[in-house]
């Protein structure tokens, strides 16, 4: 589904990713782990098409088509979803309006009919209950005045409603209490099917107590230094990133 070949990325004049190769297939959950500054978030953002990241070399393809020249909205409508590390506040834009616009944009790109308000309210109600998001938040502007945990739950809510083919979670676990962490884990597990895939970018192993990844990759200084199965994450937790660094 996602194919990354020899990807070199820079922002400004700083080289951040230095030759990433990664292949994610349907039905898989991959975890990208690594210390601060290793390029994890850059990888997540460059797949989503954040404009300030420049691809110097290599390419990213999704379902066998290169997406390097696509805008973020085009990528989103192909089924790529990024759960943000720091979701932004959108003052004055009601949650309902935002999520419905987003959902309708996706349906429209697939030449499908937009949801009616009634249909939308129904699915929004169901998913909000699943995620455990306070209905009062739904009435507010997007992320405005939300706590860190509420923002992350909001990302999970949008993920559940948009049903992406590829979900990328950018440090969704950072700053979460244990209950919220559990919700995130459950959301991912619930959404995982044989038709979609998940890429979890994280600093810590703790989210992986709830989610069992198919593969774990360790990113150090812009390169994948080691890949393995779920056990790798547990070893890392015990031995730290210095262990990987000493191997290279």
């Amino acid at each position: 589904m996602l194919q990354i070949e020899n990807l070199h990325v820079s922002i400004g004049n700083i080289k951040i990713l230095k030759g990433i190769n990664l292949s994610v297939n349907s039905g898989e959950i991959h975890a990208i782990m690594g210390p601060n500054g290793s390029g994890k978030s850059t990888l997540a953002n460059v797949i989503a098409g954040k404009p300030e990241y420049i691809i110097d070399e290599g390419n990213i393809s999704f379902n066998n088509t290169s997406i390097d020249n696509l805008t973020p909205d085009e990528r989103a409508n192909l089924g790529i979803f990024l759960a943000f590390q720091y979701p932004v506040e959108l003052p004055g834009i009601p949650m309902k309006q935002f999520i419905k616009t987003s959902l309708d944009a996706k349906l429209k790109s697939k030449n499908m009919k937009e949801t009616t308000i009634r249909e939308f309210n129904e699915i929004l109600k169901v998913e909000s209950e699943n995620i455990g998001i306070d209905t009062k938040l739904i009435k507010r502007s997007v992320n405005e005045g939300f706590s860190g945990g509420e923002k992350k739950r909001n990302e999970m809510l949008q993920m559940a409603l948009l049903k992406p083919e590829l979900s990328i979670l950018d440090e969704t676990d950072s700053g979460l209490d244990i209950d919220a962490l559990k919700t995130v884990g459950q959301s991912v597990n619930k959404l995982s099917t044989e038709e979609n895939a998940t890429l979890i970018v994280t600093h810590y192993q703790r989210l992986l107590n709830y989610i069992t990844p198919t593969k774990v990759h360790v990113l150090i200084d812009g390169k994948i230094s080691k890949s393995g199965d779920a056990q790798l994450a547990k070893d890392l937790e015990l031995r730290g990133y210095d262990w990987i660094k000493s191997l290279t």
């Binding site: 404009p51 973020p72 909205d73 989103a76 943000f84 944009a105």
Partner: peptide, 13 residues
């Protein structure tokens, strides 16, 4: 730019 990217990541032009 962050607000725009957030909206666009949700499929909005």
């Amino acid at each position: 730019d962050d607000q725009l990217f957030y909206c666009m990541q949700r499929g909005i032009s």
